[in-house]
Simulated scan of single mutants.
Amino acid sequence: MARTNLLKGIGVFAIVVIVVVGATAATGTLLSGASPSGDTEAPAYDSGLLPTAVDDSGTVEPPQSDETKTVVIDQSHGNAVGESDMEPLVDALIESGHDVRFYSGGTDSGFGGGTGGLSSGGSGLNATLRSADAFVVANPASAYTSGEINGIESFADAGGRVLLLADPVPPSASTQSIPVNIPIGTGSGTATTPGQPTNLAANFGISFGAGYLFDMENNANNYQRIYADPSGDDALTAGADRLVFDDATALTTDADATPIVQSDAQSSATRRDGTYPVAVRTDSVVAIGNTEFLAPDSATVADNDAFVSNIASFLVTGDKQPGVPEPADAATGPGTGTGGFGDQPDTTPTLPGNGTSP
């Protein structure tokens, strides 16, 4: 009897060992991803959320023009975009022999001289524009004075090319006639909260929106990285069938301005679907509700390279009358000449690319 009980106990113990060993082996198989047949390759889980590739192999081409032109980029209003943020555009202009100057108020620093050299000088904004061919404004943190606005309008009327760029205004920024924001830090590395050239753009019948555009379904792998398409057949969108803008804002215009790029998206300001202009043009003035597309990592995405190349050509293919805006005098008054920084028509250094040495 005792022997029978012992044999039963041994049998139960053997069964338990077999079950435990079998379970451990099965668990090891599951954890290792191996199938019972010994195949160690398990199929990848398809979540359906893999990013869609967006071509980024474009090249920004230098513009073609018959003579050297001078492009002035404003940095005198706490502008939150610097040279490195628009490097593809600047490089394309310099490569084709044009002069690029960064105006900072008392000092103009630039690249060019027809050969890509560095040049500098001090003058007021309107005095600087007299010998320039194009003027670029991006994300200013302070408003333009009435004298500056009058001078820039005269500059555009005389055939000078004007490019206005701005991103959405952060919710915390002041929103009066123009957001006036305080620079963060000091020196050449100063960063500022982006603003918009509201009062300057309004003079050309253009207004920048406050909110950003987004698309939750059809986007370039981020809901704020929207697609946009040409509207019409403007030369600025030649070869640019599909554009990508990251953190763009919509524009509104009067009857004199024509949308040239639009996006089917939603606005964070209204939460409404619509077709929103992202770039507009009126004569020699172009406004774009984004600056990111000029950056090195964005300028070659989709057809952005063609758009940036066309913008470079736009800046240097105008026929601007020299000497405009005119100096202030008894007839015109200070509104057309001072520009808020003082007018120095007799001492302003001639900018490179206008037939004389700097």
Rank of each mutant, 00 (worst) to 15 (best):
A201N: 01
T68E: 14
T192D: 12
I15E: 01
D56R: 12
I182M: 13
T332E: 00
G33D: 05
E83T: 13
N181A: 11
F245N: 08
D39Y: 07
I18P: 00
S154E: 14
S131T: 15
S96V: 05
G323I: 06
D264C: 00
G335I: 14
G337Q: 05
T107W: 10
A80D: 14
Q262R: 13
D157R: 11
M216Q: 15
G274R: 04
S47V: 07
E95P: 00
V162C: 07
D254Y: 02
F13K: 07
A23T: 14
R101V: 15
P62W: 11
T192F: 07
L31V: 14
T332D: 03
P43L: 05
N219W: 01
S231L: 07
G185L: 05
G232S: 08
F102Y: 15
A158L: 08
A238C: 01
A287Q: 04
D319V: 05
G48D: 06
I311Y: 08
V169A: 13
L118Y: 14
A257M: 08
P63F: 09
T249E: 03
F204M: 03
G335E: 13
V278Y: 00
T282N: 14
I226E: 11
S32L: 09
T291L: 01
F307M: 04
V19Y: 04
D46K: 12
G82K: 11
K69D: 01
L164P: 05
F341G: 11
A201D: 05
A141P: 05
L6P: 05
R242C: 00
R101W: 10
A312M: 04
N199F: 00
D264A: 13
A331D: 14
D233K: 07
T275G: 04
D256R: 11
G211M: 00
S268V: 01
I178M: 15
P349A: 09
G112R: 10
F111K: 13
Q262K: 14
T350F: 07
V60D: 03
V301Y: 02
P345Q: 06
A312D: 02
T24K: 13
A250M: 07
V169Y: 09
D229M: 12
G318P: 07
P230K: 08
S263F: 00
G289P: 02
L125E: 14
T193I: 15
V12T: 10
M86L: 14
A173M: 10
A25P: 00
N126I: 10
N139H: 04
L50S: 14
G121S: 12
D229L: 13
G195S: 03
P168M: 10
S142L: 07
T350A: 15
T186C: 01
T193C: 06
D66Y: 04
R271S: 13
A25S: 13
T52D: 11
V180N: 12
L164A: 08
V261Q: 06
V261W: 04
